[in-house]
Design a binder for these strands. Sequence first.
DNA 1: TCAAAAGTGTTGTACCTACACCCATGC
DNA 2: GCATGGGTGTAGGTACAACACTTTTGA
Lengths: 220, 220
Amino acid sequence: MSYTYEFPRPSVTTDILVFSIRDGRLQVLLIERKVDPFQGAWAIPGGFVQMEEDLRSGALRELEEETGLSDIPLRQLRAYGAPDRDPRGRVITIAFIALVQSGDLIAKGGSDALDARWFAVDELPPLAFDHAQILADGRAQLARDVTASIHDSGLVAFDFLPEKFTLSEAQKVFETLRGEDMDKRNFRKWLTNEWSIEDTGEKSTGGRHRPAALFRLKPE
Amino acid sequence: MSYTYEFPRPSVTTDILVFSIRDGRLQVLLIERKVDPFQGAWAIPGGFVQMEEDLRSGALRELEEETGLSDIPLRQLRAYGAPDRDPRGRVITIAFIALVQSGDLIAKGGSDALDARWFAVDELPPLAFDHAQILADGRAQLARDVTASIHDSGLVAFDFLPEKFTLSEAQKVFETLRGEDMDKRNFRKWLTNEWSIEDTGEKSTGGRHRPAALFRLKPE
DNA sequence: TCAAAAGTGTTGTACCTACACCCATGC
DNA sequence: GCATGGGTGTAGGTACAACACTTTTGA
């Protein structure tokens, strides 16, 4: 089967930056490419958009095929379309960002991936295509969301937290995202004033010391 | 001439939201479509990306062809790719935003446009394709930039101002963007503290009353 | 001389920051 | 019983909001 058009057309792909906070560090999910170009190199998961699917659906499909992650919320970052960004020809890609909790981390190889692994964003391997640029832009966007407005800052941070969390867990996430430590009492005052947080009545288990109260972001 | 590919490919276009503040209101530049689909309807200027040009270059080329505007800075908004957004088939578009001073306003028809005109964003005609959605997203992005951080707020506002401006002109732009009036003294304190503003020594002319000092954003 | 916009300081308030000790639990 | 993280209030400083009158020019 082949397809003929009156004018030349580019290919369109999606790429998905999956961020998580693991071991107190911001990490990103990368795949090892199974096929040329850049076979064996690390890359952001993604692939070609099908004709009948939305950009977001295509991104989710590729993400599941290559890493096993499914059903996560995506935000669009931007499109990349330099004419020479892909050696196969003109390929325009739409980059997405996903923020997941450290629990959701099943990463495996798939149809187009030899392997999938988490990397700390400050210890990255060399990346295929212009993916280093895309990743840098994604990190910058994340930093902007965190520092820009109080409201966005929280929205971003809660994406990295499970539904029920202790105040210390929340503080660690905020500190990791902002890159600086905060005062415990001030953080708690800020969080409970600025956000609708409710005590679930439950206590954390498995800790090696005094259990902490579990809180939840109250649905509007 | 025709082009054949092993897999089907979408077409890719760019669309450019050109905003300006005219008569104290936020306005947007639209074109009247010369050809089907949506012939005669109003639309955001834009068109197909050529194979050898960058997305931004394509957007600038289309903008000049359809409206006569050239050489203005563009920021990417996002990509739109719903499978049914264009009756001609699968068309993915990358939307850009431009902010221009009210002086730069030459608008004319062009190759694909019967006419080009400014519209206040709260008095829009019906729009072709999903352009009403794109325009709403662009306005929302603009509002976010203004309110999100002090720094972005200024960056956006200065794009709407000429190189030399009076403090009252600046205040009107900020007020239009924020949608609320500000205290004159507080605004001036804020502007001069938060930004590097210098008095050019010149005075505004042509005003019907007392001339005002002309200021300039000091280049870093 | 009148109308219209330009220009100019002070005071209260609300929010953010800094700071230290006791408590509950697991080992 | 001791080590470890959980939990709590106050005081000072700073940045923002509210507020009115005099000055300069064109007509």
